[in-house]
Write a protein that binds this DNA or RNA. Structure first.
Lengths: 143, 143
DNA sequence: CCGTATCCGAAAAGATACTG
DNA sequence: CAGTATCTTTTCGGATACGG
């Protein structure tokens, strides 16, 4: 590879023009991340993968989440078919959320990502430290 | 402003808190996504995985990205040790960005995610359509 | 108990003129 | 060519009062 890069283009906002194999993969990944990149989506998927969870239960287990974000995230995941919402018309309302098989498969892929993170989190932290130190040194040097 | 870093400060990624047991399992995944969750990170990693890419080259191939976001994303990826930045002190400045081995491993995991997306994008689109239709029907029904 | 509606601040992202 | 500085727009997320 003398001149490196093979003319790969990546379209972010409009996944319509994904044609080459490389861009196809790019659009799919971006699509996935778009659906799961929410601040709380993964946490909710994790809990609901363990078994059915009720609204308040999720609010308690995913600590730090606000009611609003819990509702929004649940709605989006349900809309994408990653969660099923079951309402029991009992006297105190009871609603259960469960991860769908599709979501469980996604979870498996996320475990792959977690493996990558665990393997390299140390190196990444060190890289950050080195970068920041070098930057600070260059900054004070120039000044 | 002696501390006011004249360069670009970290604006893309945000720190995470991992305290509760429920979200602890998701933490590593969230950490990964936090590092790559930028709107353009994946696109840039994909291109630079193909081979060394120059600044303007990236600007052309990652369509829609602004100069600012390109710089910001490149800096963050470099800081995390996912990209190497090589400067050639030639007369027209030449800078090349290349994905590190760590980034290439991440890319492999992302391909896994892409596989998931390709397998289920159809079902997800259908789920969305069904959800929206049902919602619209309920809305007009109530009114 | 399970949400929805509303307001607000923070953060991300876009556009672009300017520079070594 | 490869950025930086600055401004504006947009989106995200938190708090919370209210409703079924």
């Amino acid at each position: 590879m003398s001149q490196g890069n093979t003319g790969v283009t990546v379209e972010v906002s409009a996944p319509k023009e994904c044609e080459t194999p490389a861009t196809q993969a790019a659009c799919s990944v971006l699509d996935v991340l778009g659906r799961v990149s929410g601040k709380w989506s993964i946490a909710i998927l994790l809990v609901t993968t363990q078994g059915p969870a009720r609204f308040t239960e999720l609010e308690r287990q995913v600590r730090g989440i606000s009611r609003r974000m819990l509702t929004l995230t649940l709605r989006n995941l349900e809309r994408d078919g990653l969660l099923t919402r079951t309402v029991y018309p009992t006297v105190p309302p009871k609603v259960e959320y469960t991860a769908t098989p599709i979501a469980r498969e996604l979870y498996d892929s996320l475990v792959e990502l977690a493996g990558w993170a665990e393997r390299h989190v140390e190196a990444i932290d060190r890289a950050r430290l080195d970068y920041d130190v070098a930057l600070a040194a260059a900054g004070s040097d120039a000044e």
